[in-house]
Write a protein that binds this DNA or RNA. Structure first.
Lengths: 343, 343
DNA sequence: GTTTAGCACTCTCTGATGGCGAGTGCTAAG
DNA sequence: CTTAGCACTCGCCATCAGAGAGTGCTAAAC
């Protein structure tokens, strides 16, 4: 039933709706896109498409509107055509200047994505399981405080100020830091967390007070979600009239960064080629069923690292958005590789 | 003309409007607040108040609504009465656990403020001019990169990863770091920025390549806005129906953290007792003329440090909000003093 | 068999209308 | 100075009719 012509009509309807944000009628479609059929024929096709679940009518006598399934068809067809379109490098120009620092890079990516799409841009570093510790540094600070600085092999730096019960001499502090580095360098953050738990249960038996302290410091230091997420453009995003009536729920869902992070990870995981599109009801998060998102992961040393993406209304310009997200991901991958190679 | 009774009526009208969010009429006022006058009398008073610019009518036959000047009168009266009300310590319970780290403390403050008011909570650390460097640490990272960690006397830590043109030996790195510490420890961040500019112009003459490198590193490292701002509750805030029609502008203004930070600083500067209330049109930022804000600064060692505050609709519950903000500021001041004393 | 023209039908949107209710301002009496 | 009474003003809401857009169906044309 879904022959070539029917597909073409569906594709055009979705495209038109994305452009105009108005239900599209048969007459309009014929005029605007110069179809060689009369409105009546289009009406028949539309009726078929509705029966197949690709279109729906807001009410009996409005035009047709794509369902999530309709969008899915459209997006899949876009991706088959893998139209490269114009280069987007100019858009990413602003990113060139911040290649050094993965934090700035991701922040810039979120900003760029948002500014070029006027939707919400997100960027997340690699998750703890894929992040390995390069080194850990400790300094005493005003007596009973220790500043802990973690540096990962991915270039992420985290710091934390910890208050301790006991005064620690600089000498002991150095020994603790050496011990931690010898023990944990090169391991993934997740692994270290596990190791610490194991060690700490053994530690009582060992009775080495220094190691015990070291473990406690390290546990404290790792006690943050390694996996901040950068977002940009909430203001623009909120200004979109589409979901003004549900803004509160949606905004709350999006403000839950932990949740968004998990979602990004999951979506990318399931995709085959590194880019994933999630349309409306396909979204596992209930509050985000009115949204569309495009996510891609970037790589470091050829391995999947973190993710970047755009969140917008269902009826967004997928063609452009997908290009934008993919280009950004590729840019970050390149930047990280450059960095490596310069070492 | 503004005698005691008139004042009482105005105060009650504002209070009533804040509670109900409905224009308040003469009859309603008499019934609800058991005034010993008839509605007609109240009407006369209201007419006077309108003439004086404290009230206005949305349309000829609605009740009265306070103008910004009306709110100002109300807020000033509240503050004269300095009613302490119940303690809010229970609200701040969540903050107890994060006393160590100024970052967490401020983040927690923003969250607490937002959750207890359902408006937008903000918290900012001391500005660079009031922040002094405790020490600066450098480590080499994968060859041509340097991780710089700044620790201030206020407990703020900043890090940055810098890519350098030249390879630096660990030995030289240590010497650079020693030099920077001896040169800059104890100075305010702003001062250091100035000193660097001066030194760098002199440096050519000195021709000490190590110092030149040190300066460059330091300049790079200080090249971020020391003065992040923590915000929480944008979702709740946006859900407030009051300004749904201007959400986009408002959200955009608020997303501009630099601007908000400046505003907070300025407002606090001008207040006498550490707490300031800014109502609607009193706001120097045009986009925020539809908002009310309450800001207070917290102290460290008796000196003004950073600021905390709440941003909400003009018609917010100022009595509660002021208590909340002041309590939070005091809590942070205390926590910072505790910390000191524990050293 | 497929496409098209014609037509009746459905449903939303808009603007006009009018009654209701809340609240005011004014006036005159207490 | 306060109060009661009264006419008046508006915003709000429900109702209603007409216009317009779009559909589904049927019958004719290709």
């Amino acid at each position: 039933m879904m022959n070539d012509r029917t597909g073409q009509v569906l594709y055009t309807i979705v495209q038109s709706f994305i452009e105009t944000h108005e239900p599209v009628g048969s007459r309009f479609l014929v005029k605007r896109y110069n179809f060689n059929f009369s409105p009546a024929t289009i009406r028949n096709i539309m009726a078929d498409l509705e029966e197949l679940g690709f279109l729906s009518q807001p009410h009996t006598s409005a035009g047709r509107v794509p369902t999530d399934r309709g969008y899915r068809f459209y997006v899949d067809r876009i991706r088959q055509m893998h139209e490269e379109g114009e280069k987007l490098t100019s858009m990413l120009a602003g990113l060139e200047s911040v290649r050094d620092d993965i934090d700035s890079l991701l922040e810039g990516a979120a900003r760029t994505l948002s500014e070029n799409s006027s939707y919400l841009g997100v960027a997340a570093p690699a998750k703890p399981g894929r992040t390995t510790l390069n080194r850990i540094e400790l300094f005493g600070y005003k007596g009973r405080h220790i500043a802990v600085v973690l540096i990962t092999n991915e270039g992420v730096i985290k710091h934390k100020l910890i208050r301790t019960e006991w005064e620690i001499t600089p000498n002991n502090l150095r020994r603790i830091s050496e011990y931690l580095n010898s023990e944990f360098s090169g391991y993934a953050i997740d692994e270290i967390r596990l190791k610490i738990i194991k060690e700490m249960s053994r530690e009582k038996a060992m009775c080495d007070i220094l190691i015990s302290k070291a473990m406690e410091i390290c546990r404290e230091a790792l006690n943050f979600p390694l996996g901040d997420i950068y977002m940009h453009g909430l203001a623009e995003f909120i200004g979109i009239p589409d979901f003004s009536y549900r803004i509160k729920d949606i905004a709350r869902a999006i403000e839950d960064k932990g949740m968004v992070l998990k979602l990004l990870e999951k979506v990318c995981q399931e995709s085959e080629d590194g880019t994933a599109v999630l349309i409306g009801s396909e979204n596992p998060v209930k509050e985000m069923r009115d949204l569309g998102m495009v996510v891609a992961y970037y790589t470091q040393d050829g391995k999947q690292a973190g993710t970047v993406g755009i969140i917008g209304p269902i009826r967004m310009d997928y063609a452009k958005t997908i290009r934008l997200v993919e280009t950004t991901a590729r840019f970050i991958s390149d930047a990280l590789t450059d960095k490596r190679s310069s070492i």
